[in-house]
Design a protein around this nucleic acid. Structure first.
Length: 257
DNA sequence: ATGGCTGTTATAAACAGA
């Protein structure tokens, strides 16, 4: 079974690319981020016609997450995170699908740092880590997939020295990511490719894709109950070269049956 | 260091992204 995460950067503007990619790679389950559309503008019909049931948590202009499945309709278990009634951003959705509990997330960017946006990122991360611990406690097979907006190590940044003060690579946020993983999660891509340069994002600026000036910020974390099924992992790097493409690259894992 | 690009929309003397 193939499970993918893809920050589409606008689900309607990106619809031709999304459909082309779905048809080409046929993932069983997909977590989408940055829908940039309210619930009523989610392209449900086109995605249904492509063979996918979906649930989504949208928002006008910004954020927005969804879970797509061609192995049965996702059974939603949660949307949003507990711990902050003031938080209006649509950044988390969770469902049981294909015998796995899938959490799809879009962690805040957090720039500029320092500032209120970075504070919000750290607080959101704390709430997420608390929820993640609760999921681990269930002993269920769980996958937390999405755009974490964190490069975990220097291997995940094309020029680490330029990113040390950035909200995606600052010590506080790298520590938060490391602490999350140390709860017992497996970072699937890094686990299978411990020394390889793998990027999931290339800026639209300055020809970043062609220069391979990328970041690894989209991750799939596996709970102990499912980690033994991990078979392969990678990115659909070529999709970044398509016309009208997202700045992120689809990122996936393959599980043994 | 700066500015480069893209999607969404209050269509910009805008904002946010990473």
């Amino acid at each position: 079974m193939r499970i993918a995460t893809y920050n589409v950067n606008g689900v309607n503007g990106r619809l031709p690319v999304l459909l082309r990619w779905l048809e080409e790679t046929q993932p069983h389950v997909v977590c989408l981020q940055e829908l940039k559309a309210p619930d009523e503008k989610f392209p449900e019909e086109a995605i249904k016609a492509a063979g996918y049931d979906a649930i989504w948590h949208g928002q006008k202009s910004w954020n927005g997450v969804a879970i797509l499945s061609r192995v049965g309709k996702p059974q939603e278990t949660q949307r949003g995170l507990a711990g902050d009634p003031e938080d209006t951003h649509s950044r988390y959705i969770e469902a049981a699908v294909g015998g796995i509990l899938i959490g799809g997330l879009y962690l805040p960017n957090g720039n500029p740092r320092p500032g209120p946006k970075f504070d919000y990122k750290l607080r959101w991360f704390e709430r997420f880590a608390e929820h993640a611990q609760g999921l681990l406690d269930t002993k269920l097979p769980v996958i937390l997939a999405g755009d974490y907006n964190v490069m975990p190590t220097e291997l995940d940044v094309y020029k680490p020295e330029r990113w040390t003060d950035d909200a995606l690579f600052a010590p506080e946020i790298r520590h938060a990511f490391a602490a999350l993983v140390s709860q017992g999660w497996t970072d699937a891509l890094r686990h299978l490719h411990p020394a390889e340069t793998i990027y999931t994002f290339f800026d639209y600026f300055r020809n970043a894709y062609v220069r391979n000036a990328g970041l690894r910020i989209d991750h799939l974390l596996l709970s102990p109950a499912i980690a033994p099924r991990l078979d392969s992992a990678g990115t659909d790097h070529h999709v970044r070269g398509w016309e009208k493409t997202s700045d992120h690259v689809p990122t996936w894992i393959e599980l043994k049956d």
